[in-house]
Amino acid sequence: MIDYFERLSRDVRVKEGLKACMNCGICTAICPAAEFFPYNPKEICNILQTKDNKKIEALLKNETIWYCGQCMSCKARCPRENVPGMLISALRKLSQETGLFVESSKGRQQYAISKTIAESILKSGYCVHAENVKPELHPEQGTVWNWYYNNLEEIADRLGANYKKHGPGSLRLIGKKNLDEINAIFEVTGGKKFLETIHSYSTKKAQEMNLEIDDSLNSPYFIKTYTEDSDQ
């Protein structure tokens, strides 16, 4: 078995964020995620404190680590200077690197996020672009969104945006030079490689689940990861 704890303890977020938890419960009491999800930040400290790789592996495969909203309220309050939120981001990173994220439905959403937000930045310069908020994937937007979506250009124009055109203004076209720069940043910082890792583990999982996967935002695996458990 991989020595998960050893790998985690090299992460600066674990060095900074795991001191010694005395189980006071302050972080859980203040945590917005704990209020809504089966999630307890204190337990994250507890599990890491045991240094038990079996337990850590279970955590990396579990839904638990994907609920935290990274608000860092726990950082502001912990009387022992632990930061469960930072431990979560280290665990997520390790789950992504080891491919264990595909074992949970929340973890599998890494694929959906990489295909939408990450690729959207690289292609358009916008992390969230109205074009990608497809009505069939976003029932929470209501029926009116369908109309907006089909008339985006006209509506943007009426709202004073410079939709997909050169020059200043919101929703303007981002020029090639700037896009090349963004892509170069992703290249040298390891972002591209990171996305490849997510895609390659996801492709394997798609095959295992007998779901087709391709480069588009329409493949059955993409739809599955995008919508799975979204009402929970």
């Binding site: 006071c24 302050i26 859980t28 009491a29 203040i30 704990a34 204190k42 337990e43 009387p79």
Partner: peptide, 26 residues
């Protein structure tokens, strides 16, 4: 469990947030 914060309610009472760490529930 240690109280994480106190705030005032509309009727002027004090609302507390904590975790019952033995039940593991906020």
């Amino acid at each position: 469990g240690k109280i994480s914060e106190a705030s005032q309610t509309a009727d002027n009472r004090i609302q507390l947030k904590a975790e019952d760490t033995l039940l593991r529930l906020p």
